[in-house]
């Protein structure tokens, strides 16, 4: 099993991990020949939010080499906080005043413990060399366990809509959070998005208009044109939704899909949608409100 790559785009990797770290203490990273997948599928996390992401190797790494008996794939579980801390020290955008020259990430074994090593070569203020190395403890997952990892199954979404900038959504959802545990997300096919809460004491509706409804690939299949004004809605845990909104640091474009009474799927694109370097897919299960059934 061999793995070595130099991280070319440290800030993006750092931002991705920032949004992952808020979600779950441990995450799974699967390296394939072409992609890096970061997976958070822990049922234990509150609200049941999951992340399945897929990031093109070229958008983050150069000199990427991978080799293993499991079809040249390596899957590992590691502490997202530890990896984030390591990336932070490599990231030129943060407080570090060293000028980073090269960041090499590789698989190694130290004292019998498998580690993901980040070797950072940088220069001090006066141009002297500094070497920093971070060993993030990992557990390499067995192929059997990897095979058992499966993305949640969802029906064909009822609706696709482009979300406004996540930063803006976040300010609003953070205000709603103290008032309710459940958030209703409603949208229709004519660019209208609503975030609402409704409790005994308070009812708040927030509406965005003129959002874009992207064309889905199988649009021509839909013979009967659905009523564009029809609202589709889903109830989700407001905490889970806030966790998803933490990805605002890395997002450019976000498409939300509503599967009524089932779940909400959110595609957070990293980089431009056209040549997306990757996408983080968030699954937030719906809360089924018994009273409405």
């Amino acid at each position: 099993m061999r793995f070595r790559a130099s991280i070319e785009n440290v800030p993006t990797f750092f931002k991705i991990m920032q949004s992952i770290e808020k979600l779950q203490k441990k995450c799974i990273i699967k390296f394939t020949e072409t992609n890096m997948h970061i997976i958070c599928n822990n049922d234990a996390n509150e609200g049941g939010i999951q992340v399945w992401s897929q990031i093109k190797v070229d958008s983050l790494f150069v000199g990427y080499r991978i080799q293993s008996n499991a079809a040249n794939e390596i899957t590992m579980a590691l502490s997202s906080e530890a990896l984030l801390a390591a990336l932070k020290s490599a990231s030129p955008s943060t407080s570090s005043t060293y000028e980073t020259e090269e960041v090499v990430m590789k698989l190694a074994k130290k004292n019998g413990q498998a580690v993901l090593t980040l070797e950072i070569n940088s220069l001090t203020r006066v141009g002297r060399k500094v070497r920093v190395s971070h060993d993030v403890k990992i557990e390499v997952m067995r192929p059997n366990d990897v095979a058992r990892l499966s993305e949640p199954l969802c029906p064909e979404p009822d609706l696709h809509i482009l979300l406004p900038p996540l930063q803006k959504l976040r300010t609003i959802v953070e205000r709603l959070r103290p008032m309710s545990d459940i958030l209703a997300v409603r949208a229709n096919n004519s660019g209208c998005l609503q975030l609402s809460i409704n409790t005994e004491g308070v009812k708040v509706d927030t509406e965005w208009k003129n959002c874009t409804n992207p064309k889905t690939q199988n649009a021509e299949d839909e013979d009967e044109a659905p009523d564009p004004e029809k609202m589709f809605s889903v109830l989700v845990s407001i905490r889970s939704f806030l966790k998803f909104l933490n990805s605002h640091v890395v997002s450019t474009t976000t498409i939300a899909c509503i599967c009524q009474n089932h779940c909400m799927i959110l595609y957070v694109y990293i980089g431009d949608v056209a040549d997306a370097g990757g996408v983080l897919t968030f699954y937030i299960p719906a809360i089924i409100d018994d009273e409405n059934l």
């Binding site: 500094v130 190395s133 060993d135």
Partner: peptide, 16 residues
Amino acid sequence: KGKAQLITELTISAEE
């Protein structure tokens, strides 16, 4: 417990 997951080393010239 989270920090035990990470071991860091730094080497710098004594000229610093």
